[in-house]
């Protein structure tokens, strides 16, 4: 990133209201985007956006995305990307169903998935460092392997999908519990991101890994911790995703890896991570992303048109929030 660009992004210490506005221009744009979405969809959906039923399904949809992108924040703030989340979610859902159906114990199911998610986090964080690989390679590896496992697991069941039997998983799909979970994860992430070493170090690693290492930070360890933190969120999200349908199949979860990336970009966070990573990027981005799909469908937009409207809005928001004024083109 160009030096001038960094100055731009971090504000140059100007005083006054306009100085403040200028230094937060990107945040303002992303918030404005969200507000604009809300206003426009309220009108075009004839107020359906705000009916009680729609609010409840919004909460249901947001929940998974929110928990995932809050967790992903730790990884993305280091400037890394995890493309394996989607298939991980799929495999976790299937495993949970297996365990629930054979033991009926939610705790056992969750703990198993949590352990797996933590292992994957550790793998993503540590193996990349040990073997000297770019983090995208380990994450691609996990994507291939988990994708394969998901396929084989479903194939073994002899059916297109499997469902939870004898256990009322839908109690986790209750709006109150979902809000509770989101708020709890949100608070923990907000705390960890702003008031603990984890957040400080992941941002520093994203901004300048060499310097961070020279400040006595065990970057490998903290990478692993950051990925594991994400793993915890993936495990929690898996519970709520499963609770929505009570079943899982070959494609369960697959879209989430890319969706989370889109959420975070919409929130105004650069994929290069670093100091401009904020918790609100994940929150605003997720809300905008979910509202876009929901609002457009509610407004009765044709399926084929939804794609292009979404794409153009994404392009516009990106053009406004991610511009880099450096002398060189940002990569």
């Amino acid at each position: 990133m160009g030096q001038e660009a960094i100055i731009k992004k971090t504000g140059n210490g100007q005083n006054g209201f306009w100085g403040l506005v200028k230094s937060h221009i990107f945040d303002i744009f992303s918030v404005l985007g969200l507000i604009l979405c809300v206003v426009i969809f309220t009108i075009t959906s004839n107020g359906n956006l705000w009916n009680a039923y729609n609010i409840s399904i919004l909460i249901e949809t947001v929940c998974g995305y929110m928990i995932l992108s809050l967790g992903a924040l730790f990884v993305y703030s280091m400037g890394f990307m995890d493309v394996s989340v989607g298939v991980q979610l799929g495999v976790y859902s299937i495993l949970m169903i297996f365990i629930l159906n054979s033991t009926g114990s939610m705790l056992l199911a969750f703990v198993t998935v949590l352990v797996l998610a933590l292992l994957c986090g550790a793998f993503n964080g540590a193996v990349a460092v040990w073997l000297g690989l770019p983090s995208i390679v380990t994450s691609l590896f996990l994507m291939f392997v988990f994708g394969g496992i998901q396929y084989i697991l479903i194939e073994r069941t002899g059916s297109n999908m499997i469902s939870v039997e004898n256990y009322d998983i839908s109690k986790f799909a209750d709006s109150k519990i979902m809000i509770l979970a989101m708020v709890a994860v949100g608070i923990v992430v907000f705390y960890a991101f702003n008031f603990t070493k984890l957040g400080k170090y992941t941002k520093s690693i994203g901004a300048n890994e060499k310097t961070t290492a020279q400040c006595g930070v065990n970057t490998t360890l903290w990478k692993v911790i950051a990925y594991m933190m994400f793993g915890v969120c993936v495990a929690i999200a898996a519970v709520f995703l499963l609770a929505r349908t009570g079943s899982a199949g070959k494609g369960t979860g697959s879209t989430y890896a890319m969706d989370i990336m889109l959420c975070i970009i919409l929130g105004g966070m650069p994929l290069s991570g670093g100091m401009s990573s904020k918790v609100r990027c994940a929150v605003i981005g997720t809300l905008t992303y979910v509202l876009l799909s929901n609002g457009l469908t509610l407004s009765g937009v044709d399926i084929q048109t939804i794609h292009i409207i979404k794409a153009v809005i994404f392009l516009a928001i990106v053009l406004l929030t991610c511009r880099d004024k450096g002398k060189i083109l940002p990569r």
Partner: peptide, 17 residues
Amino acid sequence: QTDEAANKTAAQQLISS
């Protein structure tokens, strides 16, 4: 064809509209 959660969302949005 493969993602139940996506289908549930789609159904919910139909109900909601």
